[in-house]
Amino acid sequence: MALDTTALRQAGVATDGTLAAAIDGRATIFEMTQAAEEAVLRPQDAGPWSHELRAALAARIAVLNGETDLATRYGQGAGAFADLADPADDGAAQGLTEVVGFMDKVAADTRNVAAVDILGLQAAGVADADIVRLAELNAFLAYQLRVIAGLRLMKGAFA
């Protein structure tokens, strides 16, 4: 069965194309990557971060990384949180200023994240388990976005 994953689709890589052998050799990794997307974007136990909010944050992180097509795709599931997909929105209207600020910093200024950023979330009333959930969502997207960017380059180089 042909692999159908977000990463391959967004990179425009056909599983029967020039990269077929390399992709096929790592098929289980692409399958697990897709399973990870389910786990962070559409978990059974979402805690306080609904699937819609997660989709909005994912779209926002995709925008911060210049992946507008993926942002559109994720943004389609953002529902009432759709405004947050725009990095210019500070989350104040949804009472999520701390959360949005944290997600932006982890996504785009990772090296400067410090203990004070975690303390800020805790002070805003975010439980430790829910801080881990935010970090996992952010961290997975960092991975997926870079797999897409890398595959796209690879497709051009080995065409």
């Binding site: 390399a22 990772t110 970090a135 961290a139 991975y143 997926q144 976005l145 797999v147 890398g150």
Partner: peptide, 27 residues
């Protein structure tokens, strides 16, 4: 070759993930 470049993409990208857990959630 192609398989090696794919592994490099995956390993570097994976640490975009791991770093955002290790560096963010602890010291």
């Amino acid at each position: 070759d192609e398989a090696e470049v794919l592994d490099l993409i995956l390993s570097a990208a994976l640490f975009g993930w791991a770093n955002r857990l290790m560096h963010v959630l602890g010291d």
